[in-house]
Design a protein around this nucleic acid. Sequence first.
DNA 1: CTGTTAGCGCTTTCAA
DNA 2: TTGAAAGCGCTAACAG
Lengths: 301, 301
Amino acid sequence: MRELGYVYNRGAASLRNPQSRIVGMVINDLSNPFFAELAIGIERVLRTSGYIPFMANTSESRIRQAEVVRSMREHGASGLIICPTLDTDAKEIAALAGIGIPIVIAIRRIEGAKVPLVVSDNRGGAEQAAQRLAMLGHKRIAFVGGFANTGIRDDRVEGFSNALRAAGLAIDPLLIVDAPPTKDGGFAAMDTLLDRPDRPTATLCFNDVVAIGAMYALGRRGIVPGRDMAVIGFDDTTEARHASPPLTTVSVGVDDLGQRAAQLLLRRIEGRGSTAESQIGETRLVIRESCGGTRTIKEVA
Amino acid sequence: MRELGYVYNRGAASLRNPQSRIVGMVINDLSNPFFAELAIGIERVLRTSGYIPFMANTSESRIRQAEVVRSMREHGASGLIICPTLDTDAKEIAALAGIGIPIVIAIRRIEGAKVPLVVSDNRGGAEQAAQRLAMLGHKRIAFVGGFANTGIRDDRVEGFSNALRAAGLAIDPLLIVDAPPTKDGGFAAMDTLLDRPDRPTATLCFNDVVAIGAMYALGRRGIVPGRDMAVIGFDDTTEARHASPPLTTVSVGVDDLGQRAAQLLLRRIEGRGSTAESQIGETRLVIRESCGGTRTIKEVA
DNA sequence: CTGTTAGCGCTTTCAA
DNA sequence: TTGAAAGCGCTAACAG
């Protein structure tokens, strides 16, 4: 049998017995280390629970996402974890959920679809971070990166603004700059910000890679993060943990989010757990060198 | 039909007609940006050719790799692209190839299995880089990072050594340090190197992340890459292109490698192309700021 | 051109 | 305990 190169035909098997151990992971952007880390975390849990996770990258393309989801269903996936593309419509997800296939949506909240959600407390996290910066004495605090009018960024900007208001600080719209959520984006946005006469003394960045890009822009001008400008990133991926100087972050617990998403899906597949038990991951500040007070700000030209 | 949520059952279909459009991608480490980029490139080509790529991460686990390969075969994948784990045995691959399923091995050469290979010219690339460093006047050149006795690193070290020999330079084994192929690894290795009395004036790093880690270690001590120490990375991932100061690299053309691997597989699936047409991707130096001469070396304490 | 049927590989059920 | 047979959803081949 083995000598002849026999391969079990799972297609035929699932014809008889439609329950399969495949689980589909549909990831919007594997080139983003945050999603790559998330995917790896999810995969680990699924695998150790005896499932076979198959992954597909949608590159933020809604069409590609639809193709991939269809394909996975055709192959008998018994559940899906989806990190939806930016332009995903609630109806698409609702339709899937209506069919009855177990789904979990991760990271990006899709409003209006009755689907289990695993997201982080973006508003709260940004609030914590901005609060801390205000507490350190910063008066001009910027928010840098992310595309305007996308759910996660809106939440983070909202939390940021709330904290500033609560601290009695004015919100300068010129200090809230959108930019692609990449290193280049962060670099360019910070560079622009530094050209302004009334530059900020602290910056909350949309995510870690934006923060690292921003720190490069600082370095270019001899501005030392943590001494001359406080920088906080968001997400706390390994990207952040490897940065130099070590980056203060709002951790969204990417491992934890992945684990929750996987476990939620498994419970749904195995019939336990309700349809709409969303989970909100906690965020916490991880303070590292990049986050200083305003003491020495004036030393910088 | 659509209203009832009908889903085409591809398992049943491939029972009748065993040719499928699924292609499996088995990737050793998706948390490594090099492999993530490669995977995304491969995926793009496969997708635009009408195939459905399913990806799985093996996390450098040979057991996991075997599971994943089996699972993909069971699901009727019509071909596989494998970036093998470090400890993959040639026999495993030979067995697969013997079965007749189209396979392409990427990046890591597996000796002894008659399988199409897409790898880069690691020896040649390292040679070019070391040659350039020698030409710039460096006498003490280090090679940093990667695990000893792994194929790719051995090739790179060999090319490095060849160039040094050709330039009439002594090869100091203490300047060839192995370390995990990560930022932390690069940081620690460079940090150790800098403690030595006769520190190198130039360093070729196993890959981009090692190089970035190494540059952090330099920065920590006020040593400016490109001015006080020449640094060259390997691979030229976006990681390198985003570094600050911009990192000189030996580009292995990750996009090109992915494209070749995908196209080779497609040709094999479609019956064209021979079993053992390996391809060696060209490497070329991409010179950016981190690669300077030895002029100012003595200014550094 | 439309409609029927056999059989792909597997599992489950039922018979010996 | 072992063996035979039916049928899952699909497609290719063939009949009407």
